[in-house]
């Protein structure tokens, strides 16, 4: 298994193909293999709009919402997955959910996302902006796994979320969801 999750991007994609230039929010320009670039549906869409014959020239696609430090990280992920994933046709929503159910977070991706939560959120936002569904989904699953272990109070504290309910409103929600609270194992007896 590659150790690319440790943020080295030295792994190269075998197919030379077309090169696509993109620039980050700070204006830094990166040259990507076409296969890597097209894992972003946004870049794929732009290239298709421009017509692929123009892809080889010096035009640079501006990714104005993505900071360089995050783009570098995403590039590691894109390069790894471009080299390892099979190309899949887009799936219906339910099929997508089932496919995700049948796929544990691979070890490589777990290592990749073993970073500060704030970084995961930044990657998630950038993946959303670039429309890289699989990466966004991985980030969501990772954050959900963190939420699963926390109480409401811990979540508020961890993310600095203000409780904007009045005491009456909160009490009302508590009543409505009381049946979920400390849900005991369903008990019976088999005498």
């Amino acid at each position: 298994m590659s150790t690319a999750a440790s943020s080295s991007t030295s792994e190269t994609i075998a197919e030379p193909g077309l090169k696509i230039k993109v620039s980050t929010k700070e204006g830094e320009v990166f040259e990507l293999d076409e296969k890597v670039a097209k894992m972003s549906q946004v870049i794929r869409g732009i290239l298709e709009d421009l017509g692929e014959q123009n892809g080889g020239d010096d035009s640079v696609l501006p990714l104005t919402q993505v900071e360089t430090r995050i783009f570098r990280k995403i590039l590691v992920w894109l390069k790894y997955h471009a080299g390892h994933d099979k190309e899949e046709a887009p799936k219906a929503e339910e099929d997508e959910i089932i496919a995700r159910f049948c796929e544990e977070i691979p070890e490589w991706d777990q290592k990749f996302l073993n970073v500060d939560q704030a970084v995961i959120l930044e990657i998630m936002l950038a993946a959303d902006y670039l429309d890289i569904k699989k990466l966004r989904g991985l980030c969501c699953k990772t954050v959900a796994n963190i939420l699963k272990t926390k109480t409401v109070e811990q979540i508020r504290e961890m993310y600095g979320i203000e409780n904007d309910f009045t005491p009456e409103e909160e009490e009302e929600i508590r009543k409505q969801t009381a049946w979920c609270e400390d849900e005991p194992p369903r008990q019976g007896s088999n005498h």
Partner: peptide, 13 residues
């Protein structure tokens, strides 16, 4: 998230 946890988290904000 699991359904019961979704309901509990409604209290967050």
């Amino acid at each position: 998230l699991e359904a019961l946890q979704q309901r509990l988290l409604q209290r967050t904000c």
